[in-house]
C-alpha cells in the first residue's frame, strides 16, 4: 500500500511539474502593445503601387471555401490573415496583427512585418476583437471548427480559404488577390515567380547538371526529410527540376507529411549530391551533427552541405518563402 501510493504521488508530482514547465515555457513571448490604438496607426494602407484599382473598388460578395457568402469591404484597412501573411507581403499589404506561437513568429517575413503586433495562432475571439479588424482571412477548415465561424463573423467579415485552396499556395495567392481586389497584382506575383523559377532552373542545369539535392530538417535530435511533392520539396523538385535522391523518393512514398522522419540507418544511405540542412537544434548544440554516421554521408564529407537557420523560409510555404528558397539555392548551391 505504501509503495503504491508513493508511486502515485511521484506520478502526480511529475504531472504537476510537467504542466508547470509547459505553462512556463509558453509564457515568455508576450507582446504588450496589443491595444487597438497603436495597432490602428501601425497598419499602413495597402501599397501605393496598386495601380490596377484605378476604378474605385466597391464592396464585393464572394463565396468562401466553406460555402459561406462573405461581403468583403471595398478597401479593407485592418486585415488579420493569420499564417497567410506570406501572401499579404507578396501583395504589399500590411496586416493589423501577425501569426505567432508561444516560441516564435514567421521570422523570414520580418523585414516586411516588423513592428506588427502578434496574435496567438489559435486566434482567441477577444484577442481578435481587440484589433478591431475589418476583414479576417483564414486558411484551413480546422481554424473555424466547432461553430467558431459564427463567432468570428460577428467580429468582422470572415473568409475561409478552405483546405483545398490553402494547401496550394498558387491557388491561395490568386484567391487572396481576388478577395483583396488585387487580382492582377496576384497574377503578376505568380508570373514573376514562375519566370524566376524557370530562370533558376536553367542556371542550375548548367551549374550542377544531373545532381540530386535533399532537404533535411534537424529538430530535437531527429532528422526529417522533405517530401518530394510538398512544402519546400515542391520548390526543389518541381519548380527547380532538381533530381530527387532515391531515399527521398522512398520515404515520401510511405510518409504522409511534408516532412517525414528519417532514421540514422536510412541517413547513411542518403545518396544526395547536395544537402540542405535546416537546423532547429543550433541553440542546443546540434549534437546529432557530431554523429559518425552523419559525418560519413557523402555530401557532408564533400562539403556540399548548406546549413540554414530554423528562422529561414525553408519550413514555410508561400510565394515569398518559395522565392527566398530559390535565392538560397542559387547563392549557395549553384555558385
Amino acid at each position: 500500500m505504501f509503495g503504491k501510493s508513493r508511486k502515485l504521488i511521484v506520478v502526480l508530482l511529475s504531472v504537476m511539474v510537467l504542466s508547470l514547465v509547459l505553462a512556463a515555457c509558453g509564457g515568455n513571448k508576450e507582446n504588450n502593445e496589443g491595444s487597438s490604438n497603436t495597432a490602428a496607426t501601425e497598419s499602413a494602407s495597402p501599397s501605393p503601387e496598386a495601380t490596377e484599382t484605378a476604378a474605385a473598388p466597391t464592396e464585393q460578395k464572394l463565396t468562401d471555401g466553406l460555402g459561406n457568402e462573405v461581403t468583403i469591404p471595398a478597401n479593407p484597412q485592418k486585415i488579420i490573415a493569420s499564417y497567410l501573411e506570406d501572401y499579404l507581403v507578396a501583395l504589399g499589404v500590411k496586416p493589423v496583427a501577425q501569426w505567432s506561437v508561444p516560441n516564435g513568429i514567421q521570422d523570414y517575413l520580418q523585414t516586411d512585418l516588423k513592428d506588427i503586433p502578434t496574435i496567438s495562432y489559435d486566434l482567441p475571439f477577444e484577442a481578435v476583437t481587440s484589433f478591431t479588424p475589418d476583414l479576417l482571412i483564414l486558411g484551413a477548415n480546422s481554424t473555424v471548427e466547432g461553430g467558431k465561424y459564427e463567432q468570428y463573423s460577428k467580429i468582422a467579415p470572415t473568409f475561409v480559404l478552405g483546405d483545398e485552396v490553402n494547401s496550394d499556395w498558387r491557388k491561395a495567392l490568386l484567391k487572396i488577390g481576388e478577395v483583396l481586389q488585387k487580382k492582377n497584382q496576384a497574377q503578376k506575383v505568380l508570373d514573376d515567380y514562375e519566370a524566376k523559377a524557370a530562370d533558376a532552373k536553367t542556371k542550375l542545369q548548367a551549374a550542377i547538371p544531373d545532381q540530386s539535392v535533399a532537404a533535411l530538417w534537424l529538430v530535437a535530435n531527429k532528422f526529417y526529410v522533405v517530401s518530394d511533392k510538398l512544402s519546400s520539396g515542391a520548390v526543389l523538385y518541381n519548380d527547380l527540376g532538381l533530381k530527387v535522391p532515391n531515399v527521398v523518393k522512398e520515404i515520401s512514398a510511405s510518409g504522409t507529411g511534408s516532412w517525414n522522419e528519417i532514421s540514422l540507418e536510412k541517413l547513411a544511405d542518403l545518396d544526395a549530391d547536395h544537402l540542405i540542412l535546416i537546423n532547429s537544434d543550433k541553440s542546443t548544440g546540434s549534437e546529432a551533427l557530431k554523429d559518425p554516421i552523419w559525418q560519413s554521408i557523402p555530401a557532408v564529407k564533400n562539403g556540399h552541405m548548406y546549413e540554414y537557420e530554423a528562422a529561414s523560409s525553408w519550413l514555410y510555404y508561400g510565394p515569398v518563402a518559395s522565392s527566398q528558397m530559390i535565392d538560397n539555392v542559387l547563392k549557395d548551391i549553384a555558385k
Partner: peptide
C-alpha cells in the same frame, strides 16, 4: 498566458 489561452482541463 494572455493573450493566449491554455486548456481549462490543464
Amino acid at each position: 498566458l494572455q493573450p493566449a489561452e491554455i486548456p481549462t482541463g490543464i
